[in-house]
Design a protein around this nucleic acid. Structure first.
Lengths: 189, 189
DNA sequence: TTTATTTTGTGACTTTTGACACAGGTACGT
DNA sequence: ACGTACCTGTGTCAAAAGTCACAAAATAAA
């Protein structure tokens, strides 16, 4: 039975079986317990993870409060692109939100793959395109919508966030206080 | 004298003179007058622009107010990635903010280039990496900072925005009302 | 330069959100 | 099942931001 990982790669771009096998051979399967830290704020983060099961969250602290910058669920790639590409220290930690099964690989390994075959370059490019399009949609939320509309958008298009993320974590991701999100949610019913 | 365009490409990735010439040959130099519309909201936008001089702004309307989603200055690439890659109709217009000189090329042409040489794939990938890292920084502003801190961050790291963008346009880009930004700016002096 | 247009500053007021505190609920490990 | 820790709902109040209106200033156009 092929993993989600293989499936994702094949869907994203054409890649020879040999290249896929090579990528798998250079990745390791890992499992994080709920709350386990995959990458620590303040250290450089050179790994990428493909998530087979569970989810990872990107989190940091501002004025004593925990803020969430991102969530990655099944069938997506989690990474700190800035840290990986510039070796800058990471401004957030990456933590498992549930028991989480991943394929882990090194950013440096990815760079080698890029040199090995144009198919990998193409894979990387398409992946980045997907991520950027999604990020742009997310960022427009903050410019175009009120907190209430932001909640409604999430409820309509990102149900997973409502179903699997605590209200407290979600509120910081939407740039709202926990109490305000709680009241918004109540009004919607 | 080489254009900024050639220079940008060379800095981003290794590319043969032949490939650069090919890219240039498939681009056209254009000039937009201030206020001229490069791409219209509601239509699909399949072009990319490299900006030699001036700037482009991404703008739309919400509740009768003009909101700015992005600004692109000299030496950067402007595009509506979502529209270009999925042929979706654009949710914003792209307008020249000053007299603006660009190199214009088709997204479809870019896809052909990707097939022509892995150097172009690599170029596209690196460009996307840059854009995504910058977007992530921008988006974190909305989760981690107050309007005042947002203004301070822009003042410190994106001086161009203060110097070349009107307060009205900037305020919508930062998700603040014009009046509030005016008051924040006054307090800083 | 003069006029017209656009942009910005500011006061008064309203609305929204945040902060704090605490009670009730839920989930988790032992 | 039990206790513990964490999460959520809610009341009260304070702070921040939004809205409206209009004057002043800056830009652009004639």
């Amino acid at each position: 039975m092929p993993s989600l990982f293989e499936d994702k790669i094949s869907r994203l771009t054409e890649m020879t079986a040999e290249n896929i096998a090579f990528l798998l051979a250079n990745s390791v399967q890992k499992q994080f317990a709920k709350g386990e830290i995959a990458a620590q704020e303040g250290k450089s983060c050179t790994n990428c993870w493909f998530i087979e099961e569970g989810y990872l969250r990107a989190t940091t602290t501002k004025d004593g409060k925990e803020i969430h910058l991102n969530f990655w669920f099944e069938n997506t790639f989690a990474t700190n692109l800035k840290s990986m590409r510039t070796l800058a220290i990471s401004e957030f930690s990456i933590v498992a939100g549930e028991k989480t099964k991943v394929w882990e690989f090194e950013g440096a390994m990815l760079l080698k793959l890029y040199e090995r075959s144009p198919q990998f370059e193409s894979f990387g490019r398409k992946l980045l395109e997907e991520l950027l399009i999604e990020q742009e949609e997310h960022i427009n939320l903050f410019k175009l919508t009120t907190p209430t509309e932001r909640y409604q958008y999430i409820a309509k298009t990102k149900l997973q966030l409502l179903q699997r993320i605590s209200l407290t974590m979600l509120s910081s991701y939407l740039g709202i206080s926990r109490e305000t999100l709680s009241r918004i949610r109540k009004r919607q019913q």
